[in-house]
């Protein structure tokens, strides 16, 4: 009896070790079939990048102040005169640059932002109720983007508990602290700006121009990235990539980046 058990056990070992021998062969087969090029995300220009943007859509824009904003896409939406937009962006630009361009022509029906203090026209349209505004705590804004990016429908955050931000929202106590339920955004397009990108849609950001751009990638149905420098896939070091190309549907090299400075502060040498 004991002998029979040992025999079966030893057969199992033999069988499983045979399987292990076969696994490398399977991968050899798989790797020989794999395509040697990455999926190309390149579009030729901003016109092609903005194809499909329609009146009434909800659109995310990366950037903090004027730093790291997708200025080529904004200029194109201004030119196309797309109307009735719901815009999700930390700020609303200044009067004559950034989202201020779309405000000027009343293209924005609703603005979702955390801070809008730099823009006089914005304040006027908001106070006169010509435009709907949803002010969202900055961390909540980022997390609502990231939730959309990562398939999380809602999350609890302490930000805004006990304030008008929490009105009408579910709250819950964990430990001795209260939290507010906030939902992921649902957007049609996300326009982001990166420093470098490759044809596979991989992105690298620079300095504090990173801000909301990474969390908006893949947070809308279509993500459009404009980059200062577009290189062939393989030229960027995979270790240095901030956003993998899977989150980006269209990428193009911006024709021009003004990169305006909002508050120039310097010291003397």
């Amino acid at each position: 009896m004991e002998g029979a058990k040992n025999f079966i056990a030893s057969r199992r070992i033999v069988l499983s070790s045979r399987l292990f021998e076969l696994i490398p062969l399977y991968f050899l087969y798989f790797y020989s079939k794999i395509s040697e090029t990455m999926i190309t995300k390149t579009v030729k220009d901003v016109q092609e990048a903005c194809r499909g943007v329609k009146d009434g859509m909800t659109i995310m824009f990366g950037g903090f102040g004027l730093c790291g904003i997708p200025e080529n896409a904004i200029a194109e939406l201004d030119r196309l005169n797309i109307q009735e937009l719901t815009c999700i962006s930390n700020n609303a630009g200044v009067d004559d640059f950034g989202l201020g361009l779309l405000l000027r022509k009343r293209q924005i029906k609703k603005m979702i932002a955390s801070y809008v203090g730099e823009n006089a026209e914005f304040e006027r349209q908001m106070l006169s109720e010509e435009m709907e505004v949803e002010l969202v705590p900055q961390g909540t804004l980022a997390q609502r983007c990231q939730a959309a990016q990562s398939g999380i429908p809602a999350f609890f955050t302490p930000a805004g508990y006990g304030t008008e931000v929490a009105e009408g929202k579910e709250t819950r106590k964990y430990g001795d602290k209260n939290y507010v339920l906030e939902e992921a955004f649902q957007a049609d397009f996300s326009f982001v700006k990166a420093w470098k990108g490759d044809t596979a849609g991989n992105l690298i950001f620079k300095g504090t121009a990173r801000n909301f751009n990474p969390v908006m990638c893949g947070a809308a149905k279509i993500t459009v990235a404009e980059v200062e420098e577009l290189v062939p896939a393989g030229e960027l070091d995979p270790n240095q990539i901030h956003i993998p190309g899977i989150f980006v549907q269209r990428i193009f090299q911006g024709e021009k980046f003004e990169k305006r400075i909002e508050q120039l502060t310097v010291r003397k040498k």
């Binding site: 730093c67 790291g68 300095g207 504090t208 121009a209 990169k259 400075i261 120039l264 010291r267």
Partner: peptide, 22 residues
Amino acid sequence: PFPFEGEEDADLINAGKQTITA
């Protein structure tokens, strides 16, 4: 601190949108 005159970088600001250094 704030950058020296002429060394400011549009991609490097603080939450007040002022140019800074790292």
